[in-house]
Amino acid sequence: MDSQTMRDLVMYWQGVTLDDEAASRLAALSTSVGKTLNAVAGGSMFDTEPAHYDRALIAMAERSDD
């Protein structure tokens, strides 16, 4: 995404004005985050459950100090 598009989107969706440097930085960040998520998610997430993080953490715990 180019920085002008980023600036327009943030103004349209959030009502916040970005300066040139911020728009450029956010455009680069958006590209990076998109690439990372595509790489990590690895395709369709149709069969995933909503993330219940505490339940997942409890399942990964090993109560060695009990």
């Binding site: 943030v10 930085r25 998520l37 993080y53």
Partner: peptide, 19 residues
């Protein structure tokens, strides 16, 4: 400011893959 530029699907995806 970066939080203004993350889409809803990206946010949820990051939550979903965290476990």
């Amino acid at each position: 400011e970066p939080g203004l530029a993350i889409s809803g699907t990206e946010y949820v995806m990051s939550q979903q893959i965290r476990p």
